[in-house]
Design a protein around this nucleic acid. Sequence first.
DNA 1: CTGTTGGGTAATGTATACATTGGCTGTCCC
DNA 2: GGGACAGCCAATGTATACATTACCCAACAG
Lengths: 219, 219
Amino acid sequence: MADTRTQWAFSKLRHMIMENELQHGQPYLEQTLATRLGISRTPLREAALRLQEEGFVDIRPRLGIHIRPISCADMSEIYDILTELEPYAARRLAEMPAPAAALDALTAHVAAMEAALSADDLRGWAEADRAFHQALIEHAGNRRAERIVSTLFDQVHRARILTLNRRSGLDRSNDDHRRLIALIRAGDGAGAADVHRTHRETARREMLVLLSEMGVDGV
Amino acid sequence: MADTRTQWAFSKLRHMIMENELQHGQPYLEQTLATRLGISRTPLREAALRLQEEGFVDIRPRLGIHIRPISCADMSEIYDILTELEPYAARRLAEMPAPAAALDALTAHVAAMEAALSADDLRGWAEADRAFHQALIEHAGNRRAERIVSTLFDQVHRARILTLNRRSGLDRSNDDHRRLIALIRAGDGAGAADVHRTHRETARREMLVLLSEMGVDGV
DNA sequence: CTGTTGGGTAATGTATACATTGGCTGTCCC
DNA sequence: GGGACAGCCAATGTATACATTACCCAACAG
């Protein structure tokens, strides 16, 4: 994929962590991981360092690399930040006003969400949902915000997948998104921000309830 | 300072960049920097990687490490994010309600700002202002938000110093902060968020005007 | 004179060697 | 039986060596 081993290892490990192929509660030693990936310690260390910066692992000297579990407190922190930054993106996009390309992308993603839901393809729905949120922040034209939101989204990925088949109100989520698109198209920044903030607050609440119901703390 | 060479180099380089001892527009080669710091390339590379993750440098393979200039567009992005996250912190702190320690810290920092202003110590004022904003986010209890805000603040440091002696209305800034403390103490989350958002929006506007007046783009 | 191509070179990406240091285990003492 | 301590060992932090590769410059063709 990427041309340097460091980049490749970074992507690979990131993917493995997100897909639970590397789990928390267990130390991974540099040499072990390096051998497992077929590279030497140098690029592995660099990849691990980047993962630490992005919040995916803790490097504890001599105790190995630890996957960071996502607790309810973490979810709460992350959703709080998303609740601030995504409505900001919605407002900005509405006030640009949003280019047709952006509206088209958002619309396509909602359509995909609806199709996935009809087909009972939860994983597909989650991916389309993610794509929707990604497109929203991407087109708002704030690179740093985009990077922050994207990283946070990836951090909650495991928890989202875990709670996916217990979630209710996925169709309401789709409706929220349709309304958001309409407001963005209408150039109503305040309205768009408002709708999306409510959407986020609801998602946050539901997610925390589900996690506590499942008795999970530390995904 | 730090015990490992990587950490030390990271702090050192970060400081040098913030204080303009390393300037943009010029490539710094790994070996050169390593020699300059009296370490080998390995820890230097790791430090540079962290700096890149935090947005302070661009590593361009074979072209050296480049200090990232902060343009008006960058300032705009950064202030936008601060404008979302800091009012959030203010609201949270007000609704906790804020512990005495937090209020004391904030009050002490405003006092320092006022004292510095009376003494015409602009640099001292800037440091106290920074400490105030830092305390605000620190006590809001969202570590990730804290880290984001802190990093962004550091990124605009050079630009802030550059415009410092042209700024007007520093006393109004102090007043804003006093009002913010009062609202936090009163437990008025919405009010606190509102005041602080306005404060941030004003700061943002002033900063961009100053930078364009000075004809600077890329600090 | 301009554009292109090829070689030299130097910076990087990566592997590896080595010293250091902190964790762990087993023993001894209380 | 529990806790302190010492020694061992392994994992890391760091330096360094080496192959690769892309940049730069010069020479050449058009």
